[in-house]
């Protein structure tokens, strides 16, 4: 814990606003978090709590209004040129909506080849071999490479999304509700795959979800957000067993059947 790999320091993001337009809307306010290398931080909160915005900030796609994000000790706002390219290779996202994560006019092979092309990795044949191997690794056959996204089910798309996220051998994967659009049975499979790959590659992960059962299953630490603020932050078991904040307690109480959720966790372990 003394040397966190991802460090979020007092980050805020305000949308809109300006000299003549009033104060704007604060999506994230003064959030500080730290994740040690190889661990998963689960971020929970209801819709609009700022968790997805926080993820986009860590991904470097949204500039924070205030505060810093450090990955491996580097302030990501200061990255330019080669350092920025390197950052893009090391930090990858998995998005929420499998329907819009892929360009509908490209085959899965073209989609998976793009990161390798952008970073100039391998020859054409090496890229194809890597794509085929990776598809196998996420539980899809090489025949999926020639398909178009709409020919895949939601679960299969999220497997491809995971493959795209790890094809560049990243150190950090940021997952934004990667299973919330899936059926419960498929969710379990994709989560298991995610957990396996996270462990295999030693990924440091931020995992955003509104589903407490999912968060509990994948996270070492848990952060609870409400209205853009950090409400509670601590080791997963502590947050779930002995929540300090009233809001966390209400969130946990709102899970329809906690025992059922825990039973599923055990079944998957």
């Amino acid at each position: 814990m003394s040397n966190p790999f991802i460090e979020i320091r007092n980050v805020s993001k305000t949308f809109g606003g300006g000299m003549f337009r009033g104060p704007g809307v604060a999506a994230v306010e003064g959030v500080s978090l730290a994740v040690p290398r190889g661990q998963t931080l689960g971020i929970v909160g209801e819709s609009g709590s700022g968790k997805s915005t926080l993820l986009r900030i860590v991904l470097g796609l949204t500039r924070p209004s205030a505060g810093q994000v450090l990955i491996g000790g580097q302030d990501i706002a200061s990255l330019r040129g080669t350092a920025l390219r390197d950052f893009r290779r090391r930090v990858q996202p998995v998005f929420q909506n499998p329907a819009s994560s892929f360009n509908p006019r490209q085959t899965i092979r073209a989609i998976l080849r793009a990161p390798l092309e952008v970073h100039g990795i391998g020859t054409g044949r090496e890229r194809d071999a890597r794509i085929d191997a990776l598809l196998g690794h996420v539980g899809l056959g090489p025949e999926f490479a020639e398909r178009l996204p709409h020919q895949l089910s939601g679960g299969q798309k999220q497997r491809v999304a995971i493959a795209r996220a790890i094809i560049l051998d990243p150190q950090v994967v940021l997952a934004d509700e990667p299973t919330s659009a899936l059926d419960v049975s498929v969710q379990a499979q994709v989560l298991r795959l995610f957990a396996r790959i996270q462990a295999e590659l030693g990924l440091t992960t931020l995992f955003v979800s509104h589903n407490l059962a999912v968060i509990r299953q994948v996270s070492h630490q848990v952060a609870v957000m409400q209205h853009g603020r950090l409400v509670e932050f601590g080791p997963a078991e502590q947050v779930f067993r002995a929540p300090r904040e009233d809001y966390t307690r209400r969130l946990i109480a709102a899970v329809p059947d906690p025992r059922h959720a825990f039973a599923r966790k055990e079944a998957l372990a």
Binding site: L61, R85, R89, Q92, P93, S100, F102, V118, H119
Partner: peptide, 14 residues
Amino acid sequence: RQQYVEAAQAIGMG
């Protein structure tokens, strides 16, 4: 607004 554009930005595509 589609996530595949964000994904392209995230891999560093120009």
